[in-house]
Design a protein around this nucleic acid. Structure first.
Lengths: 337, 337
DNA sequence: TTGAAAGCGCTACCAC
DNA sequence: GTGGTAGCGCTTTCAA
């Protein structure tokens, strides 16, 4: 079992000072006018013994870890995992590492995770915030840690965020259903007060109102996929007049599909279907499902670039950016008759 | 912008020594016979100012980070994300944090990631190893870092691992197809020499051989989902005699499904389908797809418990555990006619 | 019972 | 151009 080698060992072996080695390692040799052959000698030796500076010690000293904390709702949700991978890729190129976790949209768990990340001294955060974490995020901001919110924002918190135009997206999707002759369009959502959900609801409501159609909103208190399925099944049974359903999230739609699967309900003939968030399953399902597709790559790109630019400049310019991206409606078979 | 508080501040404010505070914080008050009221005073104050010890400094001093590095092939693959979440949950309960990343099964990327994790001083590793990282893992082991391999093992490396019985699983799944009257069963896999793939192939071969049936293996040089789809489509076009396909991984099956989707091929009548790894999509697809389901929770549980037990005992007992778990065949509509 | 101080590995200020 | 050294925040040995 080998011992870990330190900068001290390097200096000792080479008969130079620690300082010199440190400068060379940090690319400040030129600036410090250290002789080329000394530089080469040190670099070669470092290479030879495969020395890696301890990032722990370095971070303790500099106060920076080059680690970004990414907190999404559920890393196994394809929407979030797509964003996570894109963020990771860009961050790596800039020398930042990402550590990520799932909040499960649970306030308590998220608060603990923020505390843990804080303890680990991550340099900055990208967060998909559940309700009730305003204070914790404010604390982060107060201690000078930049925070970029994605997917949704917190009205009470003034910071950068990247979201999509939920209201317009929902409005357009609803209009698409209406244009295809559906009249009794139900909106199935979760019982959440989060702005992105409220915006989607509002888009649906405005579209229905604009067309003089009756609104029918079903709020699911989401506990599990199984339970959601049962509630949606019961809803469909009860509301015979419904001829189309607009699901506010991909997992609600999946539950809805499971609910209809056994019943011999014909999509899109008897019921039209549109879902928020795209998903491989929706493309392959029979019939394929029309979706509101969010630009995951763009969201990731904006979020990480925003964060990195904050990290780069010590000066925290108080002008926060609120980025709102458009979505695209992918029309498939489930909504056209 | 508040300043971060340190153990020094605590000691100062309370007029006691740093040592005392440290002992109390680390639960060694009793052992050190520190008076109860001092303990309470310190704890209360710590609570009040919301002091969190710097894990950086602590780790630098103790040499432990309580962080476990988890490297899977692709965090957005449902099979791996299920394992990741389960591991994360158990680890948290034992005070360990998980940091994870995707290797994309790329040797170079994985080697870099291992180096990065090593720099970050993670205490131990759970790795889904691609080919060609034997030396890097050996190095880890040599420096005393425990490594648990999952999903597959490296024949050249002697360490703990948790895998499933791939050969028997493939054998049974193939027999299931045979029992349902399929005779020209193709095995679609990736061109990999990794043991888990070889074992699956071997299971298929033995089953076909035992039943006197002709073997037909299609190896895909997997580059992308799109390219795989085209190759599989071409394969199906060319081999008209094939009446069933056994896909060696879930993503191959998804590509296969996309390939057949346009062609009006009737599953399970004209072609039977079975896939390795379960997936929500396979349950909801029409027809639903028969799968070899791996016990993700059990894999996660064994892996993390194995690793934690290694971490706990400084003595590294040389007896490595090789755990082989059974899978279950979930029979759905795609393979029964 | 409590405290002083060494030292984990590194960066960066200041001296020469 | 190069080196000495303080100190980041903590744990732990030894002393009192």
């Amino acid at each position: 079992m080998k011992k870990k080698i330190s900068i001290n060992d390097i200096a000792q072996q080479l008969g130079v000072s620690i300082t010199t080695v440190s400068f060379i390692l940090n690319g400040r040799a030129q600036e410090k006018r250290i002789s080329e052959k000394l530089v080469k000698k040190v670099l070669d030796f470092v290479q030879e013994v495969n020395y890696k500076p301890s990032s722990l010690a370095r971070s303790l000293r500099t106060g920076k870890t080059n680690i970004i904390g990414l907190m999404v709702e559920d890393i196994s949700d394809p929407f979030f995992s797509a964003i996570a991978r894109a963020i990771e890729a860009i961050a790596y190129q800039s020398g930042y590492k990402i550590i990520y976790c799932s909040t499960e949209n649970a306030t308590e768990k998220t608060r603990e995770l923020i505390a843990m990340y804080n303890e680990r001294h991550v340099d900055g955060y990208i967060i998909v915030p559940p309700e009730g974490v305003e204070q914790d995020i404010k604390l982060l901001l107060d201690t000078g840690k930049p925070v970029v919110l994605i997917d949704r924002y917190l009205p009470a918190i003034d910071t950068d965020f990247v979201v999509v135009d939920n209201e317009k997206s929902a409005y357009d999707a609803t209009c698409h259903l209406i244009a295809n002759g559906y009249k009794n369009i139900a909106f199935v959502t979760i019982d959440s007060l989060q702005p992105q959900m409220l915006d989607r609801l509002s888009g649906y409501e405005k579209a229905m109102q604009a067309n003089g159609l009756p609104q029918l909103v079903k709020e699911i208190a989401y506990k599990s996929s199984e339970q959601a399925m049962q509630h949606i099944a019961a809803f469909i049974d009860r509301k015979k007049e419904v001829d189309a359903i607009f699901f506010a999230t991909n997992y609600l739609c999946v539950s809805g599909l499971k609910a209809t699967a056994g019943k011999g309900i014909n999509i899109p003939q008897s019921i039209g279907v549109v879902s928020f968030d795209d998903y491989e399953l929706f493309e392959l399902y029979s019939p394929s499902i029309t979706t509101v597709s969010q630009p995951t790559d763009k969201i990731a790109e904006h979020a990480i670039n925003l964060l990195i630019s904050r990290l780069k400049k010590a000066v925290s310019d108080k002008k926060f950016q609120k980025i709102i991206l458009p979505t695209s409606l992918i029309v498939r078979k489930s909504s056209v008759r």
